[in-house]
Design a protein around this nucleic acid. Structure first.
Length: 686
RNA sequence: UGGUCUAUGGUGUAACUGGCAACACGUCUGAUUUUGGUUCAGAAGAGUCUAGGUUCGAGCCCUAGUAGACCAACCA
């Protein structure tokens, strides 16, 4: 299926190594283990695509396991949402599992640990235990419960299970090492008392196993070969292995845990706790608010499963923390939607356009391509008349030659219709434009085959016929946060960076009537504007469209941004350094650039490069050159460039000084012949 | 102050047992275009955190630094 030639990520490398070391391919099994305490987000998508992708690649089963060991936080609603999201992404799990399925087995193993003297019940306060635990740099000490007898432990644990103790009063701990440099090994808790009904086991249990005690053992029960989690669990691996050691049957497969870096996205937050805070504070309308980085939010925004999977592929997997720029996500959705979205026209900020020479009252049906990228996509009808709306932004009474749109006296094409020419404007007393009057070249109708219909004009505008247009609400979204990494600021809460203008509602946009039949989730390209999808808030009386993402817009980059809002990516601190590439490159920089690859050249190219450097050197001052004398020894090319430049300067009368002599001397004794040669020339040439 | 991990263009990832640092996004040109979209052609941008060492040869191996992340929840 997947090509063998593409390079493996480090997880795949590990698997390949295990296979090479004798692991049977049919033992391969993976799992995706979410806690049902929130909605899945784009970061989870990385894990989902990794695990299920591995399943597809190796033809191995992938379990979906709900890690539901904390009834205080988990709910059925989240289980349902998670399943829906994974299915929507297009993945199929082998078995739907729950950690709670293993409560009895886990309990039995805990009893075994107690009997072996490897676990004990502790009745101290959380504070007392934390005290004894020490700190990362100071070892912990044993508490008074550590040496209870097996009988006493068995008795106390039974009473914990029977509900005799209050929440928070007793815990079961593993007896490992209170002085371990790994805090997790300092007698971690296995069980705590939680008197709350569980979404699946109800009130069967009042003691619940902790993550560490549960996870590895669950992997073992399910015979997961590779248990892949995020980097923050790296420290847990030692414990994971210790727990496995206690119960493992050597005849069975032993799971291994491996960790990869969490995926962060710029201008958003990605922890469930923070996303929950956004929901609960009503900053957003819910987990599926289109501004949320949740799978459900992205789906509602108009993202496709393909785009998200592709994003995960392109992002890659590694072990270092990183922040992927949203531009990659936007690229992925544009690329997908460009192929599949039906082209339509809609005007968001209308101004009236009257075609004075179009017969009054006449209407006609034009033909509009559904998607020029897909020859099989067909066409739809598009009503035209003498009174239209166009985008207010698409008209200026006068403009420079780089404005390709409608001005007085200039021609543009109305997409799929006629070429028109701006003639005059009607204004109100305050000077606001009420109507634009123009004339059409009635011979130029698109597709009519006339000579006029194939004329080239500089611009093409989208439009909508006033009498035929339908109206809709359109919601445009900007990034939710103004900071590139809102949750990584030392002393500021991420909520301080919430973008107050992340939602812009256009309550009355005018759309072509074809859109009246749109269904929730349908994807459209409003030509020249962007991609839009019909939102679930739509009703028979009122359509609501979400803007998924705008089209790439090289025009927007050229014009001075009227408000910082329209292009926040440049307004924030995103570029601490000035854009170095737009400055005029100085001669010395040019020399460095050429010299960098000098040693790779030969023959004519080498001679040409040397001539270029010598020519550029004419413009270099000694003050610019001197710092290059410090160039590291291994950057030979740069040193040669500096040597050639120095020769030119000396010929121009630059006086010799100790720095120069030292640089020449160093060049003479260098191993690189080219450098030695240049040094000789410079050293001898008076 | 302890332990663990990480460090490659603006961003994200490659570079097989050491052998001319590659790909994608982004940026910039030009061509095409009835979407300032798409497509096509091209360019700029990194000597791989620093300093040493091993080697004919180091992004990769070794040593010492530096920086960042993680670890002291009865969360996962």
């Amino acid at each position: 299926m997947t090509e063998e030639n593409s390079s493996l990520n480090f997880i795949e490398q590990i698997i390949a190594d295990d296979l090479a070391a004798g692991l049977s391919p049919d033992k391969l099994r993976f799992r995706f283990p979410p806690e049902p305490n929130g909605y899945l987000h784009i970061g989870h998508a990385a894990s989902i695509c990794l695990n299920f992708g591995l399943g597809e690649k190796y033809n191995a089963p992938v379990n979906l396991r709900f890690d539901d060991t904390n009834p205080a936080k988990e709910e059925q609603e989240y289980v349902d949402a998670i399943k829906r999201d994974i299915q929507w992404l297009g993945f199929k799990w082998a078995i739907e599992c729950y950690s709670s399925d293993y409560f009895q087995q886990l309990y039995d193993w805990a009893i075994q640990l107690i009997k072996e003297g490897k676990a004990y019940v502790d009745g101290q306060s959380a504070e007392a235990m934390a005290e004894q635990k020490g700190t990362p740099s100071t070892p912990g000490v044993a508490g008074p419960f550590r040496d209870l007898s097996v009988e006493e432990n068995l008795n106390l644990f039974q009473r914990m299970k029977d509900g005799e103790f209050e929440q928070g009063s007793y815990v079961l701990r593993a007896k490992i090492d209170m002085t371990s440099p790994n805090m997790l090994m300092r007698d971690p808790i296995l069980y705590r008392v939680v008197k709350k009904a569980h979404h699946r086991t109800g009130t069967d249990w009042c003691i619940y196993p902790m993550y560490d005690w549960t996870h590895g053992e669950s992997d073992y029960i399910e015979q997961i070969s590779h248990s892949i989690c995020t980097l923050e669990f790296k420290m847990h691996r030692e414990l994971y292995d210790w727990f496995l050691d206690q119960i493992i049957d050597p005849a069975k497969l032993r799971p291994i845990q491996r960790e990869f870096a969490r995926r962060n996205l710029s201008y958003t937050v990605m922890s469930k706790r923070k996303l929950l805070e956004l929901v609960q504070s009503k900053t957003v309308s819910g987990w599926d608010d289109p501004r949320m980085p949740t799978i459900s939010g992205l789906r509602r925004r108009g993202y496709t499963p393909e785009s998200i999977r592709n994003f995960s592929d392109l992002s890659g997997i590694s072990k270092r923390d990183s922040v992927t720029d949203v531009s990659l996500l936007e690229y992925c959705i544009r690329e997908d939607l460009n192929k599949v979205a039906t082209r339509v026209m809609g005007v968001l900020d209308p101004v009236k356009l009257v075609i004075t020479n179009y017969p009054a009252g006449k209407t006609e049906l034009l033909v509009s391509e559904n998607n020029p990228e897909d020859p099989n996509s067909g066409t739809h009808e598009l009503p035209f008349s003498g009174e239209l709306y166009i985008e207010r932004e698409d008209f200026k009474e006068e403009a420079g030659s780089n404005f390709f749109r409608l001005t007085l006296g200039n021609e543009v094409r109305l997409k799929s219709a006629y070429i028109i020419k701006g003639e005059s404007v009607v204004k109100d007393t305050e000077g606001n434009i009420l109507e634009i009057h123009c004339t059409a070249d009635l011979d130029s109708r698109s597709g009519s085959g006339t000579e006029a219909s194939t004329r080239k004009v500089k611009g093409t505008l989208h439009w909508v016929s006033i009498q035929h247009a339908i109206t809709a609400e359109v919601r445009e979204y900007d990034r939710l946060f103004l900071d590139e990494a809102p949750d990584s600021n030392e002393d500021k809460n991420f909520m301080e960076f919430v973008n107050p203008d992340s939602l812009k509602i256009i309550s009355k946009a005018y759309l072509e009537p074809f859109l009246a039949d749109a269904k929730v989730g349908d994807k459209f390209q409003f030509q020249r504007l962007g991609y839009f999808t019909l939102d679930k808030d739509s009703s028979a009386e009122k359509l609501v469209f979400n803007k998924t993402v705008g089209l790439r817009d090289s025009w927007a980059k050229q014009k001075p941004t009227p408000t910082a809002q329209s292009n926040p990516s440049n307004s924030q601190k995103s570029n601490p350094k000035p854009a170095q590439d737009q400055q005029v490159r100085s001669a010395i920089n040019e020399i460095q650039k050429i010299a960098k690859k000098y040693t790779n050249l030969s023959g004519d190219k080498l001679a040409a490069a040397r001539a270029d450097i010598a020519r550029l050197a004419e413009e270099v001052s000694y003050e610019e050159l001197e710092p290059l004398f410090q160039t590291a020894a291994k950057k030979v090319g740069t040193r040669i460039g500096a040597m050639i430049t120095l020769g030119v300067l000396l010929n121009k009368g630059q006086a010799r000084n100790s720095e120069i002599e030292a640089f020449i001397a160093a060049g003479l004794s260098d191993e690189n012949e080219l450098l030695v040669e240049e040094a000789k020339v410079v050293g001898s040439g008076q």
